[in-house]
């Protein structure tokens, strides 16, 4: 399938949360970038994002896109993982009515999407209450 290349290409970020850290200003680029949006420098070190953080904002998706309709309702949050690194991901294993800004969370490895019943499986990071 054509999605195999994409799945493979994105593994460093989806599986290991590899980011780029600007050697000049410390900006954390996730995913990695070629040029720093803060200082335009082009040298980055590869770093692994911390697996703990806090919720900056959140929602509960009740009307989902076609490939997620079986999962609805599910929570999505923007998570601050330290040093200014932020990710958007699902927040699972939580009470959908009790999510609050500032809640501590940790990252777990979960299945994100499946390509139909017979295609490839996409894994990656989700947040769970800490």
């Amino acid at each position: 399938m054509s999605t195999s290349a994409k799945l493979k290409r994105e593994m460093p970020q989806r599986y290991r949360m590899e980011a780029g850290k600007c050697t000049t200003c410390g900006y954390i680029a996730f995913p990695p970038r070629s040029i720093c949006p803060e200082c335009q420098a082009r040298e980055f070190d590869t770093v692994i994002l911390p697996d703990e953080g806090t919720i900056l904002t959140h929602t509960v998706i009740r009307v989902a896109p076609s490939q997620f309709t079986d999962e609805a309702p599910y929570a999505i949050a923007i998570i601050e993982l330290g040093e200014g690194a932020r990710v958007l991901c699902q927040l699972v294993d939580c009470d959908l009515e009790q999510i609050a800004i500032g809640d501590p969370v940790k990252i777990e490895f979960r299945r994100i999407q499946a390509e139909g019943k017979s295609g490839v499986l996409f894994y990656g990071y989700k947040a769970v209450p800490a």
Binding site: Q90, V92, E108, F109, R110, R111, I112, L121, Y123
Partner: peptide, 13 residues
């Protein structure tokens, strides 16, 4: 298991 958990995700954790 949650719907997004399987042998692979449990093995990773």
């Amino acid at each position: 298991p949650a719907p997004d958990q399987d042998t692979i995700t449990i093995s990773v954790e």
